[in-house]
């Protein structure tokens, strides 16, 4: 297990998780679309599967709603 911050909360997750796997775990059944920010930079969707979460990372997972 590793310790990371997800949306400012310190959380323990399995080591070796990709961003795609983490998002899937966080979303559960909701299927809400989201953007992900890793250590201050947006991780684009096409990189989710190859982005490994490391110990101490700060991650923001932000659900998107409508507007504009």
């Amino acid at each position: 297990m590793i310790k990371v911050k997800i949306n400012k909360e310190i959380t323990e997750i399995k080591s070796g998780l990709t961003m795609a796997a983490l998002v899937k775990e966080m979303q559960g059944q909701s299927k809400m679309e989201c953007i992900t920010i890793l250590n201050g930079s947006v991780v684009v969707f096409s990189k989710w599967s190859e982005t490994i979460i490391n110990d101490g990372d700060e991650i923001e997972i932000i659900v998107i709603s409508s507007g504009g």
């Binding site: 684009v44 923001e60 504009g68």
Partner: peptide, 10 residues
């Protein structure tokens, strides 16, 4: 955090 432009990501 971004602005409404982020909606296009989804």
């Amino acid at each position: 955090k971004v602005g409404t432009i982020s909606i296009i990501d989804g």
